[in-house]
Amino acid sequence: MKISLTVNGQLREVEITPYTRLLDLLREDLGLTGTKEGCGKGECGACTVIMDGELVASCLVPAPQADGSEVLTIEGLGSRDNLHPIQESFVETGAVQCGFCIPGMILASKKLLDENPHPAEEEIRLGLSGNICRCTGYAKIIDAVMMAAEKMDGRESDQDG
């Protein structure tokens, strides 16, 4: 079966099966391997993307349900030469170690900051509560979100990344 969806602003048509997960579609069919699989059961958050404005675990989204949707992955947020302020902050605060959780962490941070541009620490912890990091202990990740909030302050709203 064929579906079409907008990924990082680009309309894509993909041949799928009912057992294709959005995660497989992104990684294998579209080659967007920035989205990671850590558990396949929605527990770790490594596969987090933003779909129709909501944070989702792409390993738990049947690809047919993504038909007609708009998806933002880490590749659509910023590039090496043009980092999004959240990406910049993760680099500058040393929040990145092995990096496997980072795409999901950054997208969860984006969703959080879109809704709440000045989150308190507790709100950041809640916003990132679906994302596990095994390296950092989270402190620097929270610093990164705080720094990003500051950087984004006053910039134009950033609804579509």
Partner: peptide, 23 residues
Amino acid sequence: HNVLKADAWDKVTGDAVYPDDIS
């Protein structure tokens, strides 16, 4: 000193290639 990690850029953009990303 705080030193920025050389591999952080690849990891925040999704460019870093982990084993399962190889096709």
